[in-house]
Structures are given as structure tokens and as C-alpha cells.
């Protein structure tokens, strides 16, 4: 097993609100190996985006309270701003959900894609633009030379996301974090973008963290998966194993709630009962217990730790740690 490229250790990121401190990331730890594809899954507000932003130290106005983010031997949480600027966009790149608002509307796309090269490699305008055009071509944008002169609003949604990906990859970073890259796109385009990300991972060997709330997206793309709930990791493991036999009631309920093509017509959908918790005022014990179909008495008292359950999976659940299998209609 190779050394992890990126290691998040017990990360805590909080936000100050009128009602009190919100623990957006409440003790998250995971590893990312070179060339690996990792999916982070969870509902909106579970802390997956903040985790990614915390890695990049872009979590403001949030505060990294404690924890370490080890990247190539350095703890990024302790790095200076100048050191972080060397990392961002050069060694770790991040692309975001809505490519229309994520690209600057007043600069030409070629110029924007080339910008990291000018910034980090010090290349001149011509050289960086040539490289950018090259990358635009590689991500599947036809007539890249002409298109580089266009503005973001002149591209379709899918094309814009390709531009974003190109922009992230120009400096051949070692890690690419994609935060909900397909959420704003329609289904057919989604598939294309995912293909592209897969292709990029294989061709360039870029380790990819894919953040999404869509289990289907993760299934096709990520080798390993992390499930988050209320700022904590509740389950982690190889994607196929987690999908085949989930070791956490939340994951189990998520998988069960996906409508299946082979289900009976009259069968009702199975949503998860209840609402996501108020992060200022978390339930006692396991944050999921009020909505859990398998809860026991202990769940409302003690916070479960993330433990190995089964050969390859980790789960933070008293029930499964005790050995119970999750089954049910």
C-alpha cells in the first residue's frame, strides 16, 4: 500500500452563527492515495463541501478548529497563506458545481484556463494560452482555438464544465476535488462529464475526490466512498462493498430510497423519515438515531465511533458494530 497522498486527520471546522457554533465538520478523517478515486456522499448540509474547502483552506468564514490535513508530509492547516497559494490550483485543484457562475463572465475562457499557468509556472501569455487551448481540446471542446476567444456565456452547460475541468488540470495537479460537478447539468451531459473525469483520472493519474449527493454518480466513478451525516463520517469503504451490504442504517436507507426500474408500479417510494438535524443543536448520542429504523437504547446516549465492521468497511453505528445485519423492506 502506497503512502497516502492526502490524509485528513480528525478535522473540525466550525461556523459562528447567531444561534451558536455550527459544527460543519465534526471529526472527519480519511486518506486519499495517488491516482485514487474517492467519493464523498451525503445530503446537503452534511459537511462534505466544507470538508473539501477546509482542505484547500478556503473555508472562510468558517474556522478550522482542530485536526490536520497532511499533504505530501506538510500539514496544510498550519501552512501560511503564501504556502497555500502554491498548493491551490497547482497541486490540488478544485472545480465547483455551477460552471456558469463559477467562471468569470468578463474574461475570455482561454485566458481563464491559462491563468493558473501564468500564476504558478510564470509562463507568458502566448505560451500559457497555447497550453490552455491544448487542454481545452483534450477535455473535448471542439474548435478549441476559436472557442478559447469566447466568453463563458457563449458555452452550453456541459461545455462550461469541461472548461472548468480543463482549468483545473492545466497545471497537472496531483489531486482534483470535484464538488458536485454534475448537479447543475442534465442527465445526458452528466454522463459525458463523468466519462471525462474518469478519463482524466486514468490518463493523468490525478487522484480525484468526487463530492455528490447522487449515489448513481458515485457508483460509476469512485473506487472508494465515504458517507457523511451531520458533519461526521458514518460509513466508509470500497464502493461495491458499501452498495452490496451497507453497514450503516443511513447508507442502508439511502440505498433503499433510490427508485428502482424493476420495482412494482404500485410500490410506494421509501424516503427516510424525519428531517436532517439542526447542526447547532444536534441530537444526543448518534446524530442519526431519531430517524433510524434500527436504533437501540444506546444510540440516543453515546456517540458511536467509526470502527471496522466487516472486512473492508468502517461504520459508526452501535447496532452494526454489535454484529447486527441491516435487513428489512
Amino acid at each position: 500500500m502506497t503512502q497516502p497522498l492526502l490524509e485528513v486527520q480528525d478535522l473540525h471546522t466550525v461556523f459562528s452563527t447567531k444561534e451558536g457554533w455550527v459544527k460543519a465538520v465534526d471529526g472527519v478523517s480519511f486518506e486519499l492515495h495517488p491516482g485514487e478515486t474517492l467519493g464523498i456522499v451525503g445530503e446537503s448540509g452534511c459537511g462534505k463541501s466544507v470538508t473539501a474547502l477546509s482542505i484547500m483552506r478556503l473555508q472562510r468564514p468558517g474556522l478550522i478548529k482542530s485536526g490536520r490535513v497532511m499533504f505530501k508530509g506538510e500539514d496544510l492547516t498550519k501552512a501560511t497563506e503564501a504556502e497555500m497559494r502554491e498548493v491551490r490550483g497547482r497541486e490540488i485543484a478544485m472545480i465547483f458545481q455551477d460552471p456558469m457562475t463559477s467562471l468569470n463572465p468578463v474574461f475570455r475562457t482561454g485566458w481563464q484556463v491559462a491563468e493558473p499557468l501564468r500564476l504558478h509556472h510564470g509562463w507568458n501569455a502566448k505560451k500559457s494560452l497555447t497550453s490552455a487551448i491544448n487542454m481545452l481540446g483534450k477535455v473535448g471542446i471542439p474548435s478549441a482555438v476559436d472557442r478559447a476567444e469566447d466568453y463563458p456565456h457563449q458555452f452550453s452547460g456541459g461545455m462550461r464544465q469541461r472548461v472548468m475541468i480543463a482549468m483545473g488540470l492545466t497545471t497537472t495537479p496531483e489531486v482534483l476535488i470535484a464538488d458536485e460537478p454534475t448537479t447543475a447539468l442534465d442527465v445526458t451531459i452528466q454522463a459525458q462529464i463523468l466519462d471525462l473525469l474518469r478519463h482524466v483520472n486514468q490518463e493523468f493519474g490525478t487522484a480525484t475526490i468526487l463530492i455528490t449527493h447522487n449515489l448513481g454518480v458515485v457508483a460509476g466513478m469512485c473506487k472508494r466512498i465515504i458517507v457523511m451525516y451531520a458533519g461526521r463520517i458514518v460509513e466508509a469503504g470500497p464502493t461495491t462493498d458499501v452498495f452490496a451490504h451497507p453497514k450503516h442504517p443511513y447508507t442502508w436507507a439511502l440505498l433503499r430510497s433510490i427508485p428502482r426500474l424493476d420495482a412494482e408500479r404500485h410500490e410506494p417510494l421509501k424516503p427516510i423519515d424525519g428531517l436532517p438535524p439542526n447542526l447547532v443543536d444536534l441530537p444526543s448520542g448518534c446524530a442519526f438515531h431519531p430517524r433510524c429504523a434500527f436504533k437501540i437504547e444506546k444510540c440516543s446516549r453515546d456517540v458511536p465511533a467509526l470502527q471496522r465492521v466487516g472486512d473492508t468497511q468502517l461504520s459508526a453505528c452501535w447496532v452494526t458494530q454489535a454484529g447486527t445485519e441491516l435487513k428489512g423492506a
Binding site: 478556503l58 463559477s102 468569470n104
Partner: peptide, 26 residues
């Protein structure tokens, strides 16, 4: 507060460049 400012920061440029080039221009 726009997304492209977040993108600009993620690209690793100085805050001054973010504010005055990407931000102010808009």
C-alpha cells in the same frame, strides 16, 4: 460573494489579484 471569486481563490492567486482583477472588474 459570487462563485467565480471562490474559483479564483481556488486557483491559488493572491487575495489582491482576486479582489482587484477578478472582483473589481465585475
Amino acid at each position: 460573494s459570487q462563485d467565480y471569486i471562490r474559483t479564483a481563490r481556488a486557483k491559488g492567486m493572491s487575495e489582491r489579484r482576486v479582489v482587484y482583477l477578478h472582483g473589481l472588474r465585475n
